[in-house]
């Protein structure tokens, strides 16, 4: 469990970090909390000549809620997401989800940027960000650009981000309505067997907007447009919820692992989706 040798860089701003990435190309990788990357290096599944530590870059930090928008710096840790009273008020869904990630030790180190950046299908935040309709902000040699979370993930560990780009921040509109994050895991510190994020807005007993996204049920996070559509316009009664669950299940493609075979995962996914929607509706 000892990584191969590497050089360690600790730039003070984004430009310097990008310069190091530019210089070393494929050989270099940024490191945030290290809780995904370091295990891979210790298993020698990732062999990198240069690690570019982002922790001294102040521009990557901070939680800002302003003008109806939430902006999370990439280096905000999961523990900070949980601790922020402002964020809890503006987007309690984020806190609810963050509390279900791993364990406190991991959450002190793991960052929101590291969680969403590299397309690990087990991570909870990509699905969460798709549910929130978030935007990822990237900085690269050619300048800055933005990609919608719902367009970012291509396949497991394949994303719209170029190797020489750094994810700098995540932003999303302060969500309205009821929310819930439901996750089944085998134990503390485990990734999801199945998880679902739901946001539901009700007006006068009718659903006016709904967003449903799922974690670890495909090689990418799954935002189910059809599931949301199945709720909009209904009063979210049992029939509507069942239709949404079926629609969401039609969009997933789980694979067998130690958590269980596909039929089990599909079943549990259905339960998680239903519970998330019902709880979100009850809070809407």
């Amino acid at each position: 469990m000892i990584p191969a040798r590497f050089d360690y860089h600790r730039p003070g701003d984004i430009a310097a970090a990008l310069a190091i990435l530019g210089e070393h190309g494929d050989e270099a990788r940024v490191i945030a909390g290290g809780h995904s990357l370091i295990p891979m290096m210790k298993l020698r599944m990732a062999d990198l000549g240069h690690l570019v530590d982002l922790q001294d870059i102040a521009e990557l930090r901070g939680i800002v809620v302003e003008g109806g928008t939430v902006r999370l710096g990439a280096m905000v840790t999961q523990a900070e997401l949980i601790a922020s009273a402002e964020l809890a008020r503006a987007a309690p869904l984020v806190r609810e989800a963050a509390l279900q990630i791993a364990d406190p030790q991991v959450r002190y180190c793991g960052t929101v940027g590291g969680n969403v950046a590299n397309g690990d299908p087990g991570n909870d935040m990509p699905g969460l960000m798709q549910c929130l309709g978030a935007t990822f902000h990237l900085a690269g040699p050619g300048g800055e650009r933005s990609v919608a979370a719902r367009d970012y993930y291509e396949a497991a560990y394949m994303t719209a981000r170029e190797d020489d780009e750094i994810l700098t921040a995540i932003s999303f509109a302060v969500p309205a309505g009821g929310y819930a994050y439901e996750k089944q895991k085998r134990k503390i510190g485990d990734y999801a067997t199945a998880a679902c994020a739901a946001l539901v807005t009700m007006e006068g007993g009718r659903c006016t907007a709904a967003s449903i996204a799922m974690t670890n049920l495909s090689d990418v996070p799954v935002w189910s447009e059809a599931a949301g559509a199945a709720l909009v316009g209904t009063n979210c009664d049992a029939e509507a919820v069942s239709a949404a669950v079926e629609a969401a299940k039609a969009d997933i493609d789980p694979t067998e692992d130690n958590r269980g075979p596909v039929d089990f995962k599909r079943h549990v996914a259905g339960v998680m989706i239903r519970r998330a929607i019902e709880r979100a509706v009850s809070r809407a």
Partner: peptide, 16 residues
Amino acid sequence: HDHWRVWKIANGLGLH
């Protein structure tokens, strides 16, 4: 008796 094996019992007994 992890989750999926317990689920499998219920499934096998027709409880789903």
